[in-house]
Design a binder for these strands. Sequence first.
DNA 1: GGGTGCCTCGAGGAC
DNA 2: CGAGGCACCC
Length: 771
Amino acid sequence: MHEDIVAGLNPSQTEAVTTIKGPVLVLAGPGSGKTRVLAHRVAFLLRAVGVSPRSLMAVTFTNKAAGEMRERINRLLGEAVSTSAGWRGLTIGTFHSICAYILRQEAAPAHIDPNYVIFDDSEQLAVIKQALRDLKLDEKMYRPEAMRAAISRAKNELIKSTAFEATTYWAEVARRVYGRYEEVMAANHALDFDDLLCRTTYLFKEQPEVLSRYQERYQYLLVDEFQDTNTAQYELVSMLAGRSHNLFAVGDEDQSIFAFRGADYRNVMRFREDYPEAKVILLEQNYRSTQTILDTANAIIARNLHRTPKQLRTERGRGLQVTLHEAYDESDEANFVVSTIQRLVSQEEVRLSDCAVMYRTNAQSRPLEDAFVARGIPYRLVGGTRFYQRREIKDALAYLRLVHNPADNVSLMRIINVPPRSIGDKTIGALNTWSSELGLPMTGGMALLAGDPQMNVRYPEPPQHSLGTAALRSLTAFYRMFASWVAQKDRLTIEALLDRISEESGYATWLKDGTEQGQERWENVQELHSVAEQYDDLPPDVRLGAFLEEVALVSDQDQLAEEQDRVTLLTLHTAKGLEYKAVFIVGLEENIFPHSRSLEDPDQLEEERRLMYVGVTRAKDRLYLVRAFRRTLYGRSEVNAPSRFLIDIPEKLQVGGGIGDRKAAARQALENVTRWGPQGSNAQARPERRPARVAPAGGGQSERAEKPAEKPAAPARKTQFKPGDRVDHGLFGTGIVLKSQVTADDEEVTVTFPGKGTKTLLASFARLRKV
DNA sequence: GGGTGCCTCGAGGAC
DNA sequence: CGAGGCACCC
């Protein structure tokens, strides 16, 4: 048994799988088989060591990763030792789902309503706006989104509102908003995502006997993507492993790209400090990419200062050169991508589904989609508006959540007037004020107003309210409807309850407004049925709660099914963990990638570099790095310097695709702009080793094309150059003009230079001379 | 109370 | 350029 579990593993992997006692840190390079190691280790513990499934906890960040691990283990052991339902066996799940489960079990010691609901970002925002109103603070001055980020950051760092330290006035406001936010959340019986983690951590800290039980149960802990943990998560796992010390962490600092959501890759270092006895295992053998691709990745990441040097190896051989391509603009870029894919597919090198196009920001997907549509090539876009973020889905869920948890004022306010039932802001405000005076949620207030006998007994003399008769009538009607759903919730399946609510509330009719969009929205709501059906067999009293918890904790990332033969379009962030035979990374321009908002912060630049590293290492065989000379973004056209990442790629690894030149394509592309493009752009060539100088260097960072725009370039309607003209150029020598066009403020000349490729140059900068 | 038009602003996104 | 938020008007 022992032998077949480790069969086929390399020595480092075997060591990672079979080191059973004590802390282990696996530094796993991309494509080094870390998922495999995790699954095999679980199988090894269960089969060779004889560990009971219930003593084992494996933690991931996404449901998808958890599902894959589960599937892999089941396949390895040839039986279903792990199922998502129930916790009798193995515990495999996301940090959040495991914490949600623990908090539900330990509701009393955690001081939480066991029927708590989970508020997502937008609901959090609603609570923050409420808190700002309560504190009479101006939303313009204190942006709710910034407040939300501050609160989230604090929670990730395990800082309670009472311990929040404010050294600036803004932070002082944030401290107060945080405090009020917590009160409102408590009144709604709601937890946010961060709460799931930090409240579990507090529970363990404050109730040692509760912690003890979990420590005893979970003798073996495995944590995936350790570089993505935040402080709360780090503390949580170290507390759980406090007794056994059998903590197995897998991670790669070089793939840490989620600092913006609290991840701190320094937790990898912290692990080494906190567990000096830990066995550290490096997985450097790569099973995915060609050596050329790995060398490219290494050249890029090697410039980061804060990392453990690694040398990725493969037995796959050198493979193809990396193609660097300079396109004219974003649509030319898209055309290059699409025609290259068409060529590869027609030559039967790859299938469409082997190809992925990656970009820094979602906004860049538009021109790509246009090109795919224009050529009739099927593609699938990952990201964009997510299913559970859709308005109609949130509305439908808000109805269900309110029925499940009548204290949920946020859900109530979302749907009380959707569809319109004459309950406007004034009425809602009055009801809210009056209810909170009584210490009741708004549904409780409505019950009293509607003459609920029980409520009348408990509150015989309620205070005066300012509601008119029309408002009272509307509220009563709504309350009666709501109360009837509550009365039936356990007698109906979730689908039936949902249908009933959509019909009786008028939501269905209102949504189906006859437009195509309305129909689509209704179909989205119907989609919820298939999810809800899976809960039909659960006992009625837990059914709705379980359903709501799942839909709060799932993402459509999970439904990323590998269906038909299509090209995948996705951001570099969502590409993490995936692999494709052919990868196109587009928009390799300063200000785009690295993103303009990260240029001034060395840490953020290092993260951009890691993101590039992640992108490059997704490729198995073919890598295309594409930049556009000119790009229209937010409605204006800009000329950006080539991304600094291109410059780091050794010449011997690359081939200048459409530039058609043996010389370093990136360097040339750079020179195009640094010498003949907008002034000051040579600042871009500087690596981020001395970032402190970036800002004061005379504004050299700004790559916007304003400079040429301001130049009163000959406003002639006539071009200076015409096709066929022979021109001379300082660097490229003599070439022939292919085309030339006058733009608003300049002239763009496309010239082909024998042996140097085709260049698009700005007449005002390129010192072109007719010969 | 509900609808229309103007203004602002722009990264990445699991749970 | 385009989505979403808000103010103002009917």
